[in-house]
Design a protein around this nucleic acid. Structure first.
Lengths: 124, 124
DNA sequence: CCGCATCCTTTAAGATACTG
DNA sequence: CAGTATCTTAAAGGATGCGG
C-alpha cells in the first residue's frame, strides 16, 4: 500500500494535500480555463482579456491571473507608462498546459450538441 | 464580425450564455475533474468515490455527480436493495471527456516539479 | 485613463446531523 | 448506504477608489 507521502511526492491529484491539487484548481477554475485558452492565441493586455472573456469581473480576472502567474503558467509584463499597460502571455510551461485545456474545450465545442441533445441533459 | 447567436450555435465557451460554458464548468469543477478521473478506472459506488477523492464532502460529491449525470457524462444505476447500492460509471460521452481530463492531469502530475521548482511558484 | 486593491453584498462551498 | 436538510464559513460578484 502506497503511503500518503509517496502519493504527494508522485504529484497525485487525488491527495488533498498535494500541491498538484491546488495547481489543478487554478488551471481548471472557471476563469483559469478561459484565460489559458485566450492567451494561447496571443499576448493580451488586461482589458483585452476582460473583453474577450465574456462575463468575467475585473476582480476575478485579476485574481485568476495572479494565481496562474504564481504557478509559472502566465507571464506578466507591466510597462511603466501613463496610462498603464500590462501584457499577459503564456510561459512555455503555460503553453503546454493550455494546449491540454484547448483539447478539452475543442472536444466540448464539437460535442455540445450530443450532450444537449441527450435526454439526460437537464440544466442546472 | 460574428454575432453572439452564431457563437452560441458554434458552442463557443467564451460566450457566457453558451451552454458549453456550463458544461465546461461542471467538467472542470474542483470535484468534477476528480470524479471523471476516478470513474475512468472503473465503476464506483458513492461511498467508494467519497473515500477515493480525498477531501470531498458528501454534499459536494452528490451535487457534482448530479450535474455530470445531467450532462450525460455520468450514468447512475440504483439497485433497489436494502441497504441501498448505487453505481456510478461513465457514459461513452463521459469516457471521451474523461480521457481529455486525464491527459491534463497526467501532464500536471509529471510536471508539478517544474512548477514548484520555478521561482514564480508562490503558494496561494 | 488603465490596472488593480478594497469594501460590501450575494452566492456557493464545507461540516454534520438526520432520514428513506 | 446513499443521500438530503440545515447551519456555518469561505469564495465570487459589484461598486468604488486610487496610484501610476
Amino acid at each position: 500500500m502506497e503511503s500518503l507521502t509517496d502519493r504527494i511526492r508522485r504529484g497525485d491529484v487525488l491527495a488533498a494535500a498535494c500541491p498538484s491539487r491546488a495547481i489543478l484548481r487554478h488551471m481548471t477554475s472557471q476563469w483559469g480555463v478561459l484565460v489559458l485558452l485566450v492567451l494561447r492565441e496571443r499576448t493580451h493586455r488586461f482589458s483585452a482579456l476582460r473583453r474577450r472573456i465574456d462575463g468575467v469581473s475585473e476582480r476575478m480576472l485579476a485574481q485568476t491571473l495572479k494565481l496562474l502567474e504564481g504557478d509559472a503558467l502566465v507571464r506578466r509584463v507591466a510597462h511603466a507608462t501613463v496610462p498603464p499597460h500590462v501584457d499577459y502571455s503564456l510561459t512555455p510551461l503555460g503553453e503546454e498546459a493550455a494546449a491540454h485545456v484547448a483539447q478539452l474545450t475543442d472536444w466540448l465545442e464539437v460535442n455540445v450538441s450530443r450532450i444537449i441533445g441527450s435526454d439526460a441533459a437537464i440544466d442546472a
